[in-house]
Design a protein around this nucleic acid. Structure first.
Lengths: 228, 228
DNA sequence: GCTGTATGCTTACGTCGTAAGCTATCGACC
DNA sequence: GGTCGATAGCTTACGACGTAAGCATACAGC
């Protein structure tokens, strides 16, 4: 009945999943609905994808793959190479807010993640970082990208219990939260702020490479975990 | 039938939810199972919790609340105060790996999160940061905590497609991923690495406060998002 | 003792991921 | 050209899930 021209395939399923998440969010991505979007029953998808988990992993990898770019290696300055990757990662994740949750949480490593890790690692190694420090650097860069972006993605939809955010903004909670009340109304350019953090991290990495001894902070205090 | 001594309450439900997640992970936390754990039907929980979302939010807030400590304000050095908070946050999240996913993703702000944000913000303000910079600083600290911890929590369970991680470790993929292959075998103390990043971030913040002009990295390149 | 209110239980609905098996199409070969 | 195996999609079904609606019980205040 269905002409083989619009036959399913792993890639068509993947693209449709990305499109569906883009259009209606991650919660809307059910196998049934995804099938419907492709004019097909849910179970038909299982001919091309082992299960939903694998599909999510493939989505993550497709996105992470776009973080690196052939042009990166052309630049000789490791700072620019790293900065470009970090900014591209940030921009692509924010363009699909649902991806933040997926990427920060899924542990499965695909081709895309490996290539991204490789790009960051070699940039550091070529810049003269020891293997040990390059390893640390990868994790620091990785954590920076994910953490800042997740925090930023969380913000627009942030709602405090009982509209406390509103109360903070108009100053009526100034007694209880004086610090936040003073800062919350600052004008705020998110991209600018991210650029600030990227520079901060890259500069910090440079100092590590140059062997400047890190100053140990906050480890003296007893920060034993208080299990509530 | 049930004596009123072990009556339910919002708090008892919350504690049971935390315990259940601790024992069997977040996926095991269903209303039915949580009820069973309390010797009660699932629907009975709804007398004390509006819905599952609210319960998850309460769990997050209970954990975040433990990140700050009355002792923090005692220390005069803002670096120590910040460092203590960051290390405590890291430790408590890692003690309950399932919490990482919850905390990094949920946008709802409760009492605990507000108090944590307030603690970080006032530490920065009292250290002489401008409100604008203190605001940035809060987000940078927040991003650092979440990002690094999420990345670390993801790692132990990381599995690459077709055991590629194994292949990387024994060097058989050295041609394709030379950088990773060189660094992956480095001995690795996660807490040490986190301490490195905490110091890096705090040092970076200190420089910002002192007005050292950040060096702009990676913004020249075209990092336009490539929508796959 | 009566009654109103709080608490937990029962039943039911719609959704989810996916296992098992059926059917229909099509290319390759005798 | 007729047969046959493989491939792709469909049907049905099961056991979860969150939660809406209404019932039953048990206690507090009069």
């Amino acid at each position: 009945m269905t002409p083989p021209r619009d036959a399913l395939s792993h890639d068509r399923v993947l693209q449709a999943a990305l499109a569906l998440a883009d259009a209606h969010g991650l919660d809307a991505l059910s196998m049934r609905r995804l099938g419907a979007e492709l004019g097909v029953e849910a179970m038909s998808l299982y001919r091309h994808v082992p299960n939903k988990e694998a599909l999510l992993d493939a989505m993550v990898d497709a996105i992470v793959r776009s973080w690196i770019d052939a042009g990166d290696a052309a630049s000789t300055d490791w700072r620019d190479r790293l900065g470009a990757i970090m900014h591209r990662a940030h921009a692509t994740m924010l363009a699909r807010p649902w991806s933040v949750e997926l990427i920060t949480v899924r542990p499965r490593v695909g081709e895309g993640r490996l290539r991204y890790a490789e790009a960051v690692t070699t940039a550091l190694l070529e810049a003269g970082f020891t293997p040990q420090l390059a390893h640390h650097g990868l994790h620091i860069v990785d954590g920076t990208i994910m953490g800042f972006t997740a925090q930023q993605a969380r913000r627009p939809t942030a709602v405090a219990l009982g509209d406390r955010v509103q109360a903070l903004a108009d100053g009526s909670l100034a007694a209880e939260y004086p610090g936040i009340s003073r800062t919350i109304r600052e004008h705020h350019d998110h991209d600018e702020e991210y650029a600030l953090m990227v520079d901060l991290v890259i500069e910090g990495l440079a100092r590590l490479r140059n062997g400047e001894p890190p100053r140990r902070t906050g480890l003296g205090a007893d920060y034993a975990l208080a299990t509530t």
